[in-house]
């Protein structure tokens, strides 16, 4: 499917989607946190989109907002889209887990939880994967400061 076709198809599924292709080689879709799980489920189960391969799940700190970027590919149709979800709540950022849709998300979400402090609802095993259990801060956030161990030029 072409990007335009995907855009017209998915636009009807959930409200408040934002589409952009600016500055990216893929179609980017911004989705509201409340709609995320439903939208993702649609993307995978719909036979026309069939995004069954979540190949990258990254946490991003956009300064004001925290968010997660999902790179999706269909192994059947071989098209790729990027889904983004953001929240301005830096104290307690929470999204729905997609680990029930793509099993690989379980580990990737734990990684995001570790480094960005983003929590995922309904995650089967959300605990620290890389960091120790008594670690409190979130190293990959932009406001993380560690004057002893980090060399900033």
């Amino acid at each position: 499917m072409t990007n335009e076709a995907i855009q017209t198809l998915v636009n009807s599924w959930v409200p408040d989607l934002e589409f952009t292709e600016e500055g990216s080689q893929f179609l980017n879709i911004n989705v509201q946190p409340e709609q995320l799980h439903h939208f993702m489920n649609q993307l995978k189960s719909n036979t026309e989109t069939q995004f069954d391969y979540l190949f990258c799940l990254s946490g991003v700190d956009w300064g004001k907002e925290l968010g997660v970027v999902y790179h999706l590919e269909s192994t059947v149709h071989r098209h790729i889209i990027v889904v983004k979800v953001k929240t301005e709540d830096r104290e307690n950022p929470t999204f729905d887990s997609v680990s029930d849709i793509w099993a690989t998300a379980e580990f990737h979400e734990r990684e995001v939880f570790d480094f960005f402090g983003i929590k995922f609802n309904n995650h089967p095993n959300l605990k620290n994967l890389f960091l120790t259990e008594d670690w409190e801060r979130f190293p990959l956030r932009k406001d993380f400061v560690d004057e002893v161990n980090m060399i900033i030029k």
Partner: peptide
């Protein structure tokens, strides 16, 4: 300004750079 993604096939599988 923008976002870039590249996949390659390493000996272990798909490496993505975002």
């Amino acid at each position: 300004k923008g976002e870039y993604y590249q996949k390659v096939e390493t000996a272990r599988g798909e490496l993505g750079v975002y």
